[in-house]
């Protein structure tokens, strides 16, 4: 009990010390710096077509995807190698998801959904490499992804069903007096979809990476104050490890959630009548 309160105290002291130290140059305490976009070559301003760290990490994503899905399957073996097995597993996983969630008539959209999933999952995992820039932690990126889904689904819904697509807002299973109210709620939730869709992914990515960085800033405490540091340093290293493990899970789960939600939205567009 006494040690507990002492531990808390030391952490509090640590935070204070860190704040002071960051002024004095002791602890480096910049959890958001990892999200800065900067040019890859030179120090110029970031224009629209500048080759930046975004370009670099997205290119790595593309290369990793080529490595897995193209080079990994290049032997077309009936008895697959390990890499080919993973590629086939990814293929089967998303294809089954599209088929089960959105229905068989959504299969023409499978390459599109596979593109989204494989891009997000590879960006998330590459972002977990130490020193990496996580492209999916930026709302600009996830918002584009979400808006692509939103626009595709909306346009496709109107294209396929005309004004009948509006039936998605008219819950015919509900009692008649309730339907206008429900329709209003449905319309609002429909337009909130891309917002939640994008912020969920970017927020999860950003939060985990920022927290790891905060704990990482506490880790060198032992070099500043041995007494406090003996407790804080191991604690923060354990915390980094634990959160990293959690982030590995989150990296996959968020890609999965993004994809399955895309399938759900697609299903609404294909079959607007519940």
């Amino acid at each position: 009990m006494a040690t507990d309160s002492q531990g808390e105290e030391t952490v509090a002291h640590g935070a204070e010390a860190a704040e002071h130290a960051s002024e004095g140059g002791g602890l480096v305490f910049h959890p958001m710096d990892q999200f800065i976009v900067k040019p890859l070559f030179g120090d110029g301003a970031v224009g629209m077509f500048t080759v930046t760290n975004v370009t670099f990490w997205m290119a790595l994503t593309v290369l990793a995807i080529i490595g897995l899905l193209v080079l990994g399957t290049s032997r077309r073996a009936t008895i697959p190698s390990r890499i080919q097995s993973i590629a086939e597993l990814a293929y089967g996983f998303i294809r089954k998801m599209v088929e089960d969630v959105a229905g068989k008539d959504a299969l023409p959209y499978f390459p599109y959904i596979m593109t989204l999933f494989i891009f997000i999952v590879f960006s998330n995992f590459l972002g977990l490499l130490p020193g990496a820039f996580t492209t999916t932690s930026h709302i600009a990126v996830t918002a584009v992804l979400a808006m692509l889904v939103f626009l595709t689904v909306t346009l496709m819904g109107f294209f396929k069903h005309g004004l009948g697509f509006l039936g998605v807002f008219w819950i015919s299973a509900a009692p008649l007096p309730l339907r206008p109210i429900l329709a209003l709620i449905e319309v609002i939730s429909y337009f909130v979809r891309p917002v939640s869709h994008s912020i969920r992914l970017a927020g999860n990515m950003m939060a985990g990476h920022a927290v790891i960085k905060v704990f990482a800033a506490f880790a060198p405490m032992v070099t500043i104050s041995v007494g406090v540091g003996l407790l804080v340093t191991p604690l923060s290293i354990i915390a980094i490890t634990a959160i990293y493990a959690l982030e590995v899970l989150v990296a996959f789960i968020q890609a999965y959630v993004f994809t399955i939600l895309t399938c759900v939205y697609l299903k609404d567009a294909l079959h607007p009548h519940h």
Partner: peptide
């Protein structure tokens, strides 16, 4: 400032 760059490369 950076959004155009990110969107383009995305």
């Amino acid at each position: 400032e950076w959004m155009g760059n990110q969107i383009f490369w995305l």
